[in-house]
Each structure stands twice: as structure tokens, then as C-alpha cells.
Design a protein around this nucleic acid. Sequence first.
DNA 1: CTAGTTTCGTAACGATCGCTATGAATAAAC
DNA 2: GTTTATTCATAGCGATCGTTACGAAACTAG
Lengths: 211, 211
Amino acid sequence: MNKPDDGGKSVRRRAGRPLSFDRDEALEQAMLLFWRHGYETTSINDLTRAMRITAPSLYTAFGDKRRLFLEAAQRYAGDPEASAAAIDNAPTACEAARSILQSAVVTFTGETTPRGCLLASATASGSSSAADVQDVVAGYRQHLRERVRARIERDIADKILPTETDAAALAGMVMAVLQGLSVLARDGASRASLSDIVDTALNAWPTARQS
Amino acid sequence: MNKPDDGGKSVRRRAGRPLSFDRDEALEQAMLLFWRHGYETTSINDLTRAMRITAPSLYTAFGDKRRLFLEAAQRYAGDPEASAAAIDNAPTACEAARSILQSAVVTFTGETTPRGCLLASATASGSSSAADVQDVVAGYRQHLRERVRARIERDIADKILPTETDAAALAGMVMAVLQGLSVLARDGASRASLSDIVDTALNAWPTARQS
DNA sequence: CTAGTTTCGTAACGATCGCTATGAATAAAC
DNA sequence: GTTTATTCATAGCGATCGTTACGAAACTAG
């Protein structure tokens, strides 16, 4: 089923037996499992059972465990341009942060998905052999952090925020709260309580008249 | 292996070959390894190499991997009464939170220890078979969270904080920042930058004249 | 000394790890 | 039909997992 991608144009199939499973659905199940149990602590056996395919099918369709995880992480992260646009198009950096954090609260406490954040927990710890995978996931965080920081600096330039605002620290606080929410969600915190935490944290946001 | 306990008084050794290693030092090395690589993603082989003992020695001295980890986590957490007293004896709840977070920043960025927080990362994800260990670690977090919340409510009762202060949300924010700092520290953030994040986050603390 | 107790290193247990060789099965191309 | 290409299920690869049986070694008690 669904070859890599038509790219819009239909490409003639070469030949051979067709895929007997929905690659996209299988990837979804893999993502959910990595989300719940982490990267190294999810076994191929766990994955094949959840994806309802055999090990050879998994390897031909996704390469190996590492690439399957990276693809699942990419699926979890969603379209980077869309999230970047959401940050840039928010009325203020504070509203962008609020949107990021409140959306995260919803995601982290979904009833049909694992709790917490895949990117926060799946590679939070691991053996040395998985260092490269950890680095890729850390890159997702760094990318978001930089985006938020840039958005804050735009508000500083626009006099929405005081000129003495520490953009890096403020962006860092948003990231810290974001990652922390994942832990609290895993610990069983309710959606409402996490939402209150976000509101509380955003009280740290500087206001113009402070300058 | 150490009889129940001396209870402070030296008890006559029963008999048998003496331990050839320092149990406390071995536990320290195990703690550092769990800290760096996590619970399930640290193997017995890794542990025996770092602790410089053989597998049978490990099992006779510490029971099994699970109990070794729990003992290492307890060692990492330190004396619960001491940390509780530090919170209670702080001049204000805000200063208690500042102390917790700034101490964490120092711990999370130590040059001779792994980065981040053992309790935040070692069981951030894991297989179902480690659920009980995850629960114990979550208990450490819940305990601290409750302590902080109680300290905040004391400040509310003492009119140091506005009566409408949401103690649970404020304590939750402290915990979220604490756990988030661990992730940022693992990602390589400097001690100074994390310290700035703490200062920024504490700007969210309510002030009396707001009421 | 001998007897009793505990730890030592070696060596290996069964189970699971990530991964793949192999050949039958199923499709399109000719 | 035959050929060619791809996926299928079975079965198993070597390595590592957590854990332990075993007997020699090292101590105390008598």
C-alpha cells in the first residue's frame, strides 16, 4: 500500500506482491508505543505486535528500529513550518507561548493517547549506543526553543516587551515548563491542573510598563 | 552482606569471608550510572563494571537490579527530613522555591556528575514491567510537590501571599520548572542560563500588594 | 587444628534483544 | 503462459539481558 509517495503524480508500480498493511497506520501504532514506553525500552517484538506486522515487514518498510523511531518522532512533531507559523503569527510572544503550552497540555492529557510528551520522555535517558537518537530529539527541542526566543526578541524590538527582557531566559522558561508539564502529566495530573500551571507560569511574563 | 544494622553500636561479625569492596562506594557508582543512563537502559554488565564487582557480589549485596536502583534513588534523593526542614525553615515559600530550584541547577550541571536529575530522567519512560519502579520515583516527586504546596498555603495563611493564590498551581509550576530544568541541563544548557531561567520563572510568584 | 559461615570468581542458565536468511506467495510486465 | 519483482511467514542468527549454581577461598568460632 501507498508507495513512498506519488509526490502528487501517480507513479507506475514496478511489480511484486502488494503491501498487506497500511504503512501509515502501522507507523501510527509504532508512534503510540514509543510515546508510551520510550525508544530503547520498546522492543521490536512489542512493535510488531502493535503494528500487526511481522519483523521482516517492519524492516523492509521502515529500515530498522532507529529509523522507525525517527520517523515516528517526526510524525509526532508534526509540520515544523506550521508550528513556526503559529508562533510568528501570534499577536504577541506571550500569546504564542500560551498557545504552545496550552496545546501541549491538551496533547499531554489526551484520553486516547499516552500521557506526556514523546519528545520529552522517549529518550530522556538511554544507553550510550542511542546517543545519536537522543541528539536528534534534542534538536527538536532546540529548534522550538530558538523559534520562541526569536519571537520574544521581535516583541522586544517592537517595544511590546521591555528592552531589558532576557529573551533567552524567557524562552528557556517556556521550554522548561513545557518539558515539566510532560512529567506532571505522566504522573497523572489532570488537564485542568496543568492548564492552571500554565496560567501561573505565564504570570512571569514581563509587561511593558515594567520598563 | 551487612547484617540488618549495627544501630550505631558495633555488632560482632558472625563469620565468613569479608566483603572485598566498599558497599557505599559501589552504590555511589551505581547511582551515577543510573543517573546518566536510566534504570532499564543500564545493564547489570554496565553496573558490575562501574562498581568493580562481579554479578554475584552485586546480587548478594543489593538483592537485584530493582532494589539496587531504589537504593540508589534513595541515596540520590538524600535525607527527606532535611529537605523538608529546608522548605519549612525558609523565610518565605518563594525563597524555599528559589532554594529548591537554584540547588537543582547546581546539581543538574555538576561537572563531576551526570547532567540533569536522576529522578526526572531515569524512569521517564520504560516498559510495563518497570511500572512499579516508575511509581516509586513518581512518589518522590509527589512528596516534594506536596511539601511545596503546604509551604505556600502557610504563606497564604500568614498573609504573605494573596488569599486568592492557587497554591496547587504554584507548587505545580515549581515542579514543572524543576523537571524541565533537568531536560535543559541534559541538552547542554549552562549553569548560568538555567539560573536565569529560575529567576525568570520566579517572577510568576504572586506579591502581597496584588491582593 | 576443625567446623561453620560468608564472599569470591567462573561459568552458564533460559529468555529476550535487534535483526535477517530463506523460500513460498502474489502481484505486474511481457 | 513465463519472467521478474516485491512481500509474505517461518525460523533462527549471534549477542546480550537479568540472574544464579557451583566450588574454591577467606574469614570467625570453638
